[in-house]
Design a protein around this nucleic acid. Structure first.
Lengths: 144, 144
DNA sequence: CGCACTTAAGTTGTGCACAACTTACTTGTG
DNA sequence: CACAAGTAAGTTGTGCACAACTTAAGTGCG
């Protein structure tokens, strides 16, 4: 057996480690806002455009209702959003931001710079990394 | 506000997405072995060298006893390892592989190639990605 | 020696991920 | 219209991650 299989494992482990390290950098900053990283991602989606259905949010983030339903209830309990049954389609739940939820966007503006500062990579390297990861994720999804 | 902060967020999200997509590719293969991805990582550490203390395994993988203690109990329940209190230092628990645990290494040998096939990247790109992720993870850890 | 300090592992509690399932609503087809 | 099929959201159960804490064993200094 060559060492090639070993290398591939390390790519997967490298992704797993880097992802956890990145969210660990975000954690103390997000804690000031009272958000977890997945909650922050949902807020980013809503800040971009709202109201949104649970399924739409899930498609943006690659999460299903099993993850999002309880998460959205927690955001509602924090007073950041409201869940309203759609009138046209009673199956849908439209997620609306509250004024407090909209306001949080301002406080969150400076957050992403923390990662850039902590990353130890140049802007070009970060850009290339993002691009490679995007291609990788798409290919992995195609592989089911 | 420029769009630079936005980009940085996307790097973090790209890591998060790629990591989940990669473990999703591993999942059905590991399911045949009855392992989850974190359990597989622990087995990789043990296949390399055993017995190991819980703390040593944790240092290799960046996990603490809060994660590893229950995980190791599940591996023990699967009959893959044994947890024995060390004689010299009664605080330590040495994790030994069972014959079944050692045998699983053979079945697991072909696993990492699946990711390579599904990745849609060249070997050089994977190698460079691994290297960049390693630098990134180290820098993020330095930033506490 | 005695006792504070440190360390290894485990426990508890919260919040994701994800599979599998349920419920309720909508849509398409005869 | 009726009803099978499809769809949106929620529920249940398992297994990580991680913070905060506990327990028990080793270490070092006065």
């Amino acid at each position: 057996m060559t060492d090639a299989p070993r290398l591939d494992h390390q790519v997967c482990f490298a992704l797993y480690s880097a992802s956890r390290a990145a969210t660990a950098v975000y954690r103390p900053v997000l804690e000031e806002l009272g958000l977890t990283y997945p909650q922050y991602l949902v807020m980013l989606v809503l800040w971009e455009n709202e109201p949104r259905g649970v399924k739409e949010i899930g498609e943006e983030l690659g999460l299903d209702s099993g993850t999002l339903s309880p998460l959205l209830k927690r955001l509602e309990a924090l007073g950041l959003c409201e869940r309203r049954r759609s009138g046209e389609d009673e199956r849908r739940v439209a997620i609306h931001l509250t004024p407090a939820g909209r306001e949080l966007s301002g406080k969150a503006g400076a957050i992403p710079q923390r990662l850039a500062q902590a990353a130890g990579l140049t802007a070009e390297e970060l850009d290339q990394l993002r691009h490679t990861l995007g291609r990788l994720t798409a290919a992995l999804h195609d592989a089911h």
